[in-house]
């Protein structure tokens, strides 16, 4: 983790009030992993006192570039949307814990609700680069808010659900899960908390529905400690959580979500958690 500057290369509105910005930030691009985030400084401390956390959306290690995808929600993101190429943005990162893919997993299912695409998008590239197959289930209110398929790699299977049925499946993105749960070796989700909670419930019943037996490894196998990469890697469903954030380095304890073993900092223990590390009832 470092304090660094990114130089804006390209900025465009990909959906109403949603922007995709590409930055030159070689040091960050060299080390960041899918699921991690950067903490971006706004220009005017006298008015806007907090940095804004953004998942790293895509990474181009060769070019030393990263992109972030955000929606204009307030003054900070309004200011960001007005940045022009060559403008510089102060960032701190990479921060947080990444998604963990089991080496044996061949089929990865990514599930995104709305802006949640920003949280899982980078994993699609990482997974394809390592020869895996990727399907993305995406949910939005209407066709106007559906993440453009042109921004996804061709190899991805992209399935869309809209609340109003204006594109794809009519209903929730979670409705699509059963058709993919047998295919997927692991699933990774980002989106509104009720969506993640519904997915966690579905994931909890998956083994029983599919008749999967958990055999464990040969010899003595120790249970993976909460918050460890092993715990996430062994979990069928990993979720990227969102919370209002202060310091982003674990100092202020502002960004907690409630885990099964008490408060967990999204900035340090997260933002990626194994679904069964979160106390979904307490978080709701």
């Amino acid at each position: 983790m470092r304090l660094l500057e990114g130089e804006l290369l390209e900025s465009r509105e990909i959906l109403p009030r949603q922007w995709l910005q590409r930055y030159r930030a070689p040091w960050l691009a060299g080390g960041v992993r899918a699921g991690q985030f950067v903490h971006v400084r706004t220009p005017d401390y006298s008015g806007l006192v907090l940095r804004r956390p953004f998942s790293v959306n895509t990474v181009d290690r060769k070019q030393g570039e990263i992109s972030i995808h955000f929606r204009i929600e307030g003054k900070g993101t309004e200011w960001m949307a007005r940045l022009r190429p060559a403008d510089r943005l102060e960032m701190m990162g990479p921060l947080g814990r990444p998604f963990e893919v089991d080496p044996r997993s061949r089929h990865l299912l990514l599930i995104a609700g709305g802006l949640g695409m920003a949280g899982v998008r980078a994993l699609a590239d990482e997974a394809l680069a390592s020869g895996r197959q990727v399907a993305i289930l995406f949910g939005a209110r209407s066709a106007a808010e559906v993440y453009p398929s042109s921004l996804l790699p061709d190899e991805v299977e992209y399935v869309v659900a809209t609340d109003d049925g204006s594109l794809g499946h009519v209903g929730r993105v979670t409705d699509l899960l059963p058709a993919f749960e047998a295919w997927a070796d692991q699933a990774f989700a980002c989106g509104p908390e009720p969506m993640l909670a519904a997915l966690a419930t579905l994931a909890g019943g998956r083994d029983a529905r599919l008749g999967v037996a958990r055999l464990g490894r040969k010899g003595r196998s120790r249970p993976a400690g909460l918050g460890t990469p092993q715990a996430r890697r062994r979990s069928w469903l990993q979720v990227s959580m969102e919370q209002n954030m202060g310091c982003a380095v674990g100092a202020c304890l502002g960004c907690v979500v409630i885990g099964v073993k008490g408060p967990q900092r999204v900035c340090r223990e997260g933002p990626v958690f194994a679904a069964d590390e979160i106390d979904w009832e307490a978080s709701a």
Binding site: L48, L50, M245, V256, P263
Partner: peptide, 11 residues
Amino acid sequence: PPRVTETPAGM
């Protein structure tokens, strides 16, 4: 949670 929120010129 939530435990923090930004306010005008503060949090």
